[in-house]
Structure formats: C-alpha cells, structure tokens
Design a protein around this nucleic acid. Sequence first.
DNA 1: ATAATAACAGTAACGATTACTGTGATTAAA
DNA 2: TTTAATCACAGTAATCGTTACTGTTATTAT
Lengths: 131, 131
Amino acid sequence: MTALKYSKQRESIKHYLMTTNEHPTADMVYMHVKKDFPNISLGTVYRNLNLLTDIGEAVKIATPDGGDRFDGKVEPHNHFLCTVCGRLLDLDLDMKSIEEVNRLAAENFDGIIRSSSTLFYGECSDCIKKS
Amino acid sequence: MTALKYSKQRESIKHYLMTTNEHPTADMVYMHVKKDFPNISLGTVYRNLNLLTDIGEAVKIATPDGGDRFDGKVEPHNHFLCTVCGRLLDLDLDMKSIEEVNRLAAENFDGIIRSSSTLFYGECSDCIKKS
DNA sequence: ATAATAACAGTAACGATTACTGTGATTAAA
DNA sequence: TTTAATCACAGTAATCGTTACTGTTATTAT
C-alpha cells in the first residue's frame, strides 16, 4: 500500500540482475554495485533484493550449500548446480515441459500446484573437460 | 577415510528421520531427540545430519524461507511447499517421470545431469479447506 | 519551495550453522 | 579383558547470512 519511491541504488541492483547470468549471492550483488555506489550498504542490497523478489522483478533461488542466489530472469525456468565447481547455471526447459511436470505432479497430489522450481545436479561441461 | 564409529545419538537421529515425514529442521530434530538424550548438543545434531547427508542416508532440502529441512527418505522424490502454512510435504512422481524430466533437461544442456530435485509451490489441501 | 515520507548508510542484533576444547565412549589390538 | 588410540560427544564460542534499528538524505506530491 505504501508508495514505491525511486532510487538509483535499486535501479542499479535491478540492472545488474537483469544483465548478468551469474546468479549472484547478495554479497556478490553488493560488491558489484559498490563500483557505482562506493558507500552503498549491504542492508540496502538485501532490502532491495527482497523487494524486487516480492514485486516479481527478481527470483530467489535456494541452494543446499549456503546463501540464496538471485536471478533477474523471472520467466519460469530451472537451474543446474555443478557438484564439482559449485556454479549455478540456467537450464531452460520449454514451457510445455514445465507445465507437463506440474500436471503430472498434480495427479497424485491433493492440493493446488501453482509453480515449481527444479534444481538439477551433476557436472558442468567445464568440469568434465578438466577431468 | 577415517573410520565411522557408532553412537547412540546418531542412531536416534537417523531413526527419527526415517520414521517421520515432517521434514524437520535441525532444531526440530534436536528437540525430538532431546526426549531420549536430554543433554544432547545441538552441534551433535548438526554434525550428524550433515554426516548422514554426506553418506547418503539423509537428504537436505533447501527452501527459500529460512533453514534447511532434512529427510530420511533418500529415494528420489520431490517436495511441495505450501505458500500459505509453510508446510513441506512429500510429492511423489513416479521414477519414469523424474527420469523423463532429467532426460528433457539434458537435451538442451551441455553437461551431465545426475539427479534433480523439484520443489512445487501452491496451496495444500488443508489450507484450501480453510479458505 | 515546502512538507511528508520512503530509502538510504551505518551499525547493532538475530538466527542458523560451524568450529573449538576438553571429556567420555567405541573399537581394535595386545 | 585391559590397554591404547581415536572418534564422537557436550558445552560453548565464533562465524555467516540476514534482518532490524536509527538518524540522515533523497524523492515525490502539494
């Protein structure tokens, strides 16, 4: 209900999220945005990341190894976590497949499924080359 | 490499994980096991949960809302997080569907996919009834 | 311009998790 | 079945990611 007020800092955070595919942690966002706003506060980064997530302009990705990652790509898609190097990569399934999974899941389930997020595990191409 | 030594505490933690479907947090495990071992340490719970996870006798589930959950059911299956009440429930897809998803994902992906974990979001049946 | 207030920087507090330390339990070997 | 080695423990301190607080600054509506 409270009006949303513009800020350069939020603009910068959002721009970074939308132009990177690094799936940065809050701290990575902080370090990056610091280049343009040397005295930005980490709290500001967290507040804006959560704000952007709440209004649907960013996505929060939980991983079993430490802090959350953020993504400026809000269209439904999935992620791959390399168990060797720890990198988080985009993994696009076409919408049909995603919807199909949700439909299959709904068959044996006694509630309403609104969305889903799949995290795939394995070895990324870079780590395969090195081994 | 270092030998694994038996302990009643680990036994109890593992037993609880295997017989509940609550997907407890570390703290919930702590409070439960405390009934049998009143002076067990929370550190012991964490150490053993991680140990069990490492040796494949438990699974750690990351959720975007706070602490990790643990599951003694290690066969591949997925989970549903109710966005209303916050409960985490099992959601079984048959193996065929899971494998199919992994196969579909592998088609557009340049690495090896070993496993996947899908978190579904929506409203559980209890919360639907109440609304 | 002015007033109202959202957003900020800086910092303190918090909750979840891990690391450390000295003690006790389990295991393998004598 | 003692002994010796060491893993696991309880208890506590430290760390890490995140959120909350406070006084100041920037944005917006009047």
